[in-house]
């Protein structure tokens, strides 16, 4: 049976351990956006012992570069980008306390190991559904790297943001499951 779960962000250990690959999850609370260029900068900051622009501990990063908001609106189209491009930078962030990621697509072996090692969770949002997903975003504020435009780091307030657990803290990967044992009730 597919499970529907309503959770809060930032995450806590109990919530993470309750999530299983295949669960439909609705996230409410605060999450952050970062994609290619912001990950590169965070990685450079870490290499130079510089400060990261956001607190990683227990937080979720959404791999998103939104389209511009029209006047009076919170955000433009806001769907996930391909997560695999962040794989090079991700294990270091997970080791520093990042607990969740929202994106789409497969992750590397190194990311999976870091997810299991640190008890984290990887969610997929529906790729190419940016108009629909924008409805669940209630506030958006650029908090770092403003010069990167769409690739800046944003703090988002979300309400019942819909995602699917692709990789749980035990390392189960929904993309690798076959039709028979996929959680498809």
């Amino acid at each position: 049976m597919k499970m529907e779960k309503y959770i809060r962000a930032p995450l806590d250990t109990e919530t993470i351990s309750s999530l299983k690959a295949g669960d439909f999850v609705y996230i409410s609370g605060t999450i952050y956006t970062a994609r290619d260029a912001a990950h590169k900068r965070m990685s450079e900051a870490l290499a130079g012992k510089g400060a990261l622009p956001i607190e990683l501990k227990n937080n979720i990063i959404y791999y998103l570069g939104p389209s511009p908001a029209r006047e009076g609106r919170v955000i433009g189209s806001a769907g996930p980008t391909t997560s695999g491009r962040m794989d090079k930078y991700t294990p270091a962030l997970l080791d520093l306390g990042l607990k969740g990621m929202i994106g789409k697509g497969r992750r590397s072996k190194e990311v999976k190991e870091a997810v299991v090692r640190n008890g984290c969770v990887y969610f997929a949002a529906i790729g190419g559904a940016g108009a629909l997903l924008s409805k669940a975003i209630k506030a958006s504020e650029v908090v770092a790297y403003e010069d990167l435009g769409t690739e800046a780091v944003r703090k988002l307030e979300v309400e019942n943001f819909p995602v699917i657990v692709v990789m749980d803290a035990d390392g189960n990967d929904l993309y690798e499951k076959t039709a028979e044992n996929r959680n498809d009730g």
Partner: peptide, 11 residues
């Protein structure tokens, strides 16, 4: 997307 004039996809 069509009704609210939000791009179908952010990309």
């Amino acid at each position: 997307a069509g009704e609210d004039m939000i791009p179908i996809c952010q990309d």
